[in-house]
Design a protein around this nucleic acid. Structure first.
Lengths: 193, 193
DNA sequence: TACAAAACTTGCCCAGTAGGCAAGTTTGCC
DNA sequence: GGCAAACTTGCCTACTGGGCAAGTTTTGTA
């Protein structure tokens, strides 16, 4: 395997990460509405035009972290044993991700909390979770059999993702309760018959 | 009860409906990206500025119909017997709404199909469904007992709404299958344990 | 190592957009 | 009738997304 994906790719990843970080921090400091794309680009030492080559708007930049985590979750799901029950596989992957996320980045939830409740952000978060829906449905279709596999896979994917979203949102509103707890409880409440 | 909510309110409702209708039709005719807010306002005989007093963007205007239907669904859910199992109440309400929607407006799905697959629209649709999530959660909390009522109500609300969204999206992609069928199958697949 | 092709950045540009403000108009109510 | 509240409109401005073309960096190949 290729350890280094090439200089070009590494630079792009760095720029993307810098823009994300700048967007997040500025949004926290000045409020989402108080930040301009230009300010974000400046903070990341890049032109405003380049920002547009990476993200389609500041909200997308702010939620880049979620996008990355969601992709990671897809990986984890694909890595689950093929003969697990689908919901079991999803639950395991979700708990693994929650653990990883929490260990690797303790301040994650704290920073989230600082931009909670903004309506346009909430809308974008919902959308961010929905983006991987089709990909996840395709994966789940492989693990299902019987009638209506396509529809059932889609429903399962949507349910799972929306449950994760609710767990995360709920976590930002109840700082006292461990993330793993909330995720586990939410997934248990959502488990299909 | 007051039959007439007053001239002012009726006019507002009419303007809103006209803007929605214009937005929908123009988006179908010229493509979502080809339509400007100004064109929509013109078609509804209203100034561009007034459009902004009603909707925050063309996507919101396009999905106004969904918003109305979702509010109607909330009503139907509240009207279900208080001692029904929550998921039973939700299922009944959903099927009633599907019937109403289909009977009252046969071309609804047909027109939807014409603007399927546009990414920015998909994102807004997801958001439109998520808007009522908290309201629905509050209603469902009344019907639950035991531990973690708040979280479980929220998860249930989110699951239900996302399932309805998937059913509708799936319906626009499979014109042959009756909407009621798809809704019933989706809700069955989503039913929590 | 050299160098052409591909990919990326940037500045310039423009049409579209949200929303503040103030003047004019319509509706509700006594 | 007449006043107050609500709504519409035009004007204005800062911000945005994305097309284009020129300049720069990386990559693959010879």
């Amino acid at each position: 395997m290729d350890e280094t994906p090439g200089l070009r790719e590494r630079k792009k990843a760095a720029t993307r990460a810098a823009l994300h970080e700048a967007a997040l921090q500025l949004a926290i400091d000045q409020g989402v509405d108080g930040v301009t794309v230009e300010a974000i680009a400046d903070a990341a030492n890049v032109s405003r035009r380049t920002f547009s080559n990476y993200f389609s708007g500041k909200e997308e930049a702010i939620f880049h972290g979620d996008t990355v985590r969601l992709r990671r979750m897809l990986e984890l799901i694909r890595a689950q044993p093929a003969d697990d029950q689908p919901w079991t596989a999803l639950t395991r992957a979700a708990l693994q991700l929650a653990e990883e996320t929490y260990l690797g980045n303790e301040e994650w939830l704290t920073r989230r909390r600082l931009l909670r409740g903004h309506p346009s952000l909430a809308a974008h978060q919902v959308a961010a979770f929905a983006v991987v829906e089709r990909e996840l449905a395709a994966e789940l279709a492989e693990r299902l059999s019987g009638d209506d596999v396509a529809l059932r896979a889609r429903v399962l994917a949507a349910i799972f993702l929306t449950t994760m979203r609710v767990a995360v949102q709920d976590s930002t509103e109840h700082p006292d309760r461990p993330l793993l707890d909330v995720v586990a409880a939410a997934l248990a409440a959502a488990a299909p018959a």
